[in-house]
């Protein structure tokens, strides 16, 4: 409960809104570029990495709700749970230092992508009759023709696109974290110290320089805003 509250300060709530807006803006612009990628979860992974698993999950879940509410992609809400898990995973990976190197970030992306493909397949199969209503359905048809059943065909289709998409997404977020000033990263508090988290303490009127030094070490963000 405590960690949950820590991830939903006014600052992180604002970041979540910006993360969702980035998902939608990039998702629609990339769609226009005609790449075989979605890149509609850069905001989710970024928020997860900066703030933590709960905030990442919220960003993913609410992004899909917003896709539905805008009418841009009304069926998105069916995948809100998968999007939430992607954000949560990004938070966990970042906390464990997987965003410290590009190789680990790429691997984390591939793992997330495979998991996302596996989790998405039952939704396509049982909610949407085995299709997603896009060009990738041709792949599903090919797998069905090769003899796979409905569920496996959708898993197979997903593993064609999701791991690559999440690999690119995680590497993009890794490079963004690299470019982001340490002060900004520290403000959100999920990334490990090695990723440049300075001391975050708060004291009121310590008696002198010595008291300040000890207070620096002892104080945790205790009196943050809600």
């Amino acid at each position: 409960m405590n960690s949950l509250r820590k991830e939903f300060t006014t600052l992180s709530i604002t970041l979540i809104a910006v993360g969702i807006a980035l998902n939608l803006a990039l998702g629609t612009v990339v769609l226009r570029l005609g790449l075989p990628l979605y890149l509609d979860s850069i905001g989710t992974v970024l928020v997860g990495a900066l703030v933590g698993p709960w905030a990442g999950a919220a960003t993913g879940f609410l992004s899909n709700l917003v896709w539905t509410l805008t009418g841009l992609f009304p069926q998105a809400f069916a995948w809100a749970g998968v999007a939430a898990i992607i954000g949560a995973l990004a938070g966990v990976f970042a906390r464990s230092g997987w965003f410290n190197s590009v190789g680990k970030a790429a691997l984390a992306g591939i793992i997330t992508g495979v998991l996302s493909a596996i989790l998405s397949a039952p939704i396509a199969t049982y909610v949407f009759g085995g299709v997603v209503g896009a060009g990738t359905d041709a792949l599903v048809a090919a797998f069905r023709a090769a003899g796979l059943d409905a569920l496996l065909s959708n898993v197979a289709q997903g593993t064609f696109s999701d791991p690559l998409d999440k690999l690119v997404t995680f590497v993009v977020v890794w490079s963004l974290l690299l470019a982001l000033p340490a002060r900004e990263k520290a403000r959100f508090g999920n990334l490990p110290v090695s990723a440049g988290r300075p001391l975050a303490g708060k004291t009121r009127r310590p008696a002198g320089k010595a008291a300040k030094k000890t207070a620096k070490k002892a104080a945790k963000k205790s009196t943050r805003r809600r």
């Binding site: 600052l11 975050a200 303490g201 708060k202 004291t203 009121r204 009127r205 310590p206 300040k212 207070a215 620096k216 963000k221 943050r224 805003r225």
Partner: peptide, 11 residues
């Protein structure tokens, strides 16, 4: 300061 930005104050 000090409610949004934590950090240290004196005075």
């Amino acid at each position: 300061v000090p409610h949004f930005y934590n950090g240290e104050t004196e005075g």
